[in-house]
């Protein structure tokens, strides 16, 4: 069962105006036969946020490389490895200075796999017509109260879910995207990504998605924006 994936990340207007780099990061890799996508958002108030988000991409990939060797290993072991490897990747950088959210998906060729999320942002799981977010923000909450690597080491702060084999669509995005999305349009968003963007060749597809993210329609938007999409069929 083929796996298709693509994504893009663009700096937000606030960072462009300040001459700062994108503090989001995303990456994808094939690890022990699983297609892996990681999306991370370095917390805006931290001095080394950019390093933190990039370290999260490396840490998740490394953690999965070790964890996938043991099919029966609990997910908590994987999450603990992510924390450890993230700290190691930071080396001398203080974790609090590099705090970052961390969202990832690992999907085997048959569509089975794992999705996980620590902190703000959104992971959407689309099984047929059913589309639901992983780990909803509490209704009692407000925007930008993020848990993150470097903020907590509690494994129960993560949301995660194992998904079975079969056709599936996954979306992972940072809060610069997630906080402005209309929940009742989630299915249509997945349809647009799958039907309008996915069929494009890689370079035009990246350009089209990056252009959409740069020209974000919600007024007063300032955040960096990152979105990744996976599909098993």
């Amino acid at each position: 069962m083929p796996i298709d994936l693509f994504g893009a990340s663009v700096p937000g207007p606030a960072h462009i105006a300040a001459g700062l780099a994108n503090q989001d990061a995303w990456g994808h890799a094939v690890v022990r036969g699983h297609h892996v996508v990681v999306v991370a958002d370095g917390l805006g108030s931290r001095s080394r946020a950019q390093d933190g988000s990039r370290a999260a991409v490396v840490a998740v990939t490394g953690a999965l490389r070790a964890w996938l060797r043991y099919p029966d290993a609990p997910v908590e072991v994987l999450l603990a490895l992510v924390h450890l490897l993230w700290r190691a990747e930071l080396a001398l950088i203080k974790p609090d200075d590099a705090a970052t959210t961390c969202l990832f998906a690992a999907m085997a060729p048959d569509g089975a796999g794992l999705v996980a999320q620590l902190g703000d942002g959104l992971v959407l799981i689309g099984d047929g017509d059913d589309v639901e977010p992983l780990g909803q923000r509490s209704d009692e909450s407000f925007a930008n109260h993020s848990l993150a690597l470097g903020v907590t080491r509690r494994l129960d702060a993560w949301h995660w879910r194992r998904v079975g084999p079969g056709p599936r669509r996954l979306l992972l995005c940072t809060d610069g995207v997630a906080d402005d999305l209309l929940p009742d349009r989630y299915p249509d968003l997945l349809d647009w990504l799958e039907q309008d963007l996915l069929p494009l060749p890689p370079q035009p597809r990246w350009r089209a998605l990056a252009c959409e993210l740069r020209h974000w329609p919600t007024p007063h938007h300032t955040d960096d924006k990152t979105l990744a999409f996976l599909r098993s069929r």
């Binding site: 993210l213 329609p217 007024p219």
Partner: peptide, 14 residues
């Protein structure tokens, strides 16, 4: 025109 417009809030975060 942004395709994302139909999937996103039209007002700023209050």
């Amino acid at each position: 025109m942004s395709k994302l417009k139909s999937f996103t809030a039209s007002n700023a975060r209050p």
